[in-house]
Design a protein around this nucleic acid. Structure first.
Lengths: 229, 229
DNA sequence: ACAAAAGTGTTTTAACTACACCCATGG
DNA sequence: CCATGGGTGTAGTTAAAACACTTTTGT
């Protein structure tokens, strides 16, 4: 670490809160009330306070906007955005996060609901988002797609108890593919500690009752779950 | 982005410069000349200047300490370290990078050579490094191990022209495994755009002349190159 | 009874492992 | 000629893809 002139910055945490809604990957956006970029859509975010880490700042934003505690989601750092002029008023370095959450439904617990909305990501990416938030969102989506291959993060999109078909739909939507139900079932149930059966069943998806599962302790898949090959 | 009180910080870029030396994964460490942690070993790093991005700051550190330009290495962000008390004197948020570079040999181009040294990572991880640099180094090594599975980053450890066996040794050292030479050869040569044959051969590793290759344009492997399964 | 979704069995196909074997050089 | 590492051939094993088929519910 060398000496330098005046190298201090504002550090912000911006969060792409992703969920699956109406059969599509969606992101929570807020309408900015103040300049810069007043009135534009933006990712939730805020400055990192002197006594908190960037992760805690991101978790705080997540909770404020959705009421979802960090423990019920997957929150991952996806990059640092530090172009000197990315904020027109002053130097702000942003640490970007992706949060994968279950669909919270129409209502949200906290935040000023009027100013927030869920938007399918393919539409959100065409919006003129504030700052470089289009870049951040793009990377968040890319990150989510890859994470599903190598980790158990897909379960973060599901309710605490879910069926294998619900989990499969997560993969199908995020990867934009069709997966064979039978082969998928075999594949995920064979992986040790990925899914923990509850013993309960449900018929909420119609047809034969499906076994319910919760996420097991596994975080990284021993073999990648491939989108297509 | 909400308003807040006094949320500005110093932002630093710290770089774990990794290479393969004497058959082991090694990291470049500097001996700190000034407090805090004076005299301790640390990763190269420095504050981000007002007109540069964190990536550029990391590339600058890399060049200053090794003389290696960013283009000849793989430089990747591996995380943000922001515990409020990680620097005892003031709030410093560090953006950590891993740089994968070919072995530069005994001499180094820039930097004050006396204060820098290469250390095998397993030894470095037992040293009392400054700040939270042990954590950063650990994550850098973990990152490198995973990157080798899914990307073509292994070529960054090799000289511009390398043989397939030299590439194989990179994998064997980083993954601490033995790989079958024949199967490895077939596997990597079959992947489109991974390796570009130069037409030249070398006998520098003994035995039958080996074809020389340069890195192709591919960045992500279509199928993971697995360490063991 | 029928539709719809869950879950299992079976055949085919592709990939990986292990290891034998040949090739081309230096000494 | 022999040692050394480069590279190819090949048989056996294993996993994945495709898809037919059985199971269990709601209506």
């Amino acid at each position: 670490m060398s000496d330098s002139t005046n190298p201090h910055s504002f550090v912000a945490a911006d969060v792409a809160i992703l969920t699956i809604r109406d059969g599509a990957l969606a992101v929570l956006l807020i309408k900015r009330a103040n300049p810069p970029h007043q009135g534009k859509l933006a990712l939730p975010g805020g400055f990192v306070e002197p006594d908190e880490t960037v992760e805690r700042a991101a978790a705080r934003e997540l909770f404020e906007e959705t009421g979802i505690p960090k423990s019920a989601s997957r929150l991952e750092s996806i990059g640092v955005y530090s172009e000197p002029d990315r904020d027109p008023r002053r130097r702000v370095i942003s640490v970007a996060f992706a949060a994968l959450v279950p669909d919270p439904g129409e209502s949200r617990a906290g935040g000023d609901a009027a100013a927030t909305q869920w938007l399918p990501v393919d539409r959100a990416l065409k919006e003129p988002l504030a700052f470089d938030h289009v870049d951040i969102l793009g990377r968040a989506v890319e990150h989510a797609r890859r994470q599903l291959e190598y980790t158990t993060d897909a379960t973060a999109f599901c309710n605490p108890e879910f069926t294998i078909a619900e989990l499969r739909r997560v993969y199908e939507i995020v990867w934009e593919t069709k997966l064979d139900p039978g082969n998928f079932h075999r594949k995920v149930t064979r992986i040790e500690d990925f899914l923990r059966p509850t013993g309960e069943t449900t018929t909420r998806d119609g047809g034969r009752p499906a076994a319910l599962y919760t996420a097991g302790g596994l975080k990284r898949l021993p073999l990648p779950l491939s989108p297509g090959r």
